[in-house]
């Protein structure tokens, strides 16, 4: 099966996010007064061939742990969507 994968990498709670803090401090100067808790991360998208969704998720978890994120400071959130469910 083919899957579309979105891996969102973000700093773990408690890890200082100076980019997020800077954005949060800047928004009020444009009149956006109600913004709180800004966190900056990155999004990694790719397509993956795998036997089924559990197999895809297991492989992605391994990728995240060993390469796509640094588990010391980063968390990941994975979204998997099957693109050809008929096959």
């Amino acid at each position: 099966m083919r899957f579309e994968v979105l891996v969102e990498v973000s700093l773990r709670p408690g890890v200082a996010d100076p980019q997020g803090q800077t954005i949060e401090r800047s928004l009020p100067t444009l009149g956006f007064a109600g913004v709180h808790g800004v966190r900056v991360g990155k999004a990694i998208r790719f397509e993956l061939e795998a036997l089924d969704e559990p197999a895809a998720r297991a492989e992605i978890a391994d990728m995240c742990d060993r390469f796509l994120s640094n588990p010391v400071i980063e968390d990941t959130r994975v979204t998997v969507t099957a693109t050809d469910p008929a096959r």
Binding site: L11, V15, A16, P18, Q19, Q21, T22, N70, V72, I73
Partner: peptide, 17 residues
């Protein structure tokens, strides 16, 4: 060396960006 696992921990963006 930290990414290669030869040393523990990680380096993140400086305080105050």
């Amino acid at each position: 060396l930290t990414e290669a696992g030869l040393l523990p921990g990680a380096l993140q963006k400086n305080r105050g960006l």
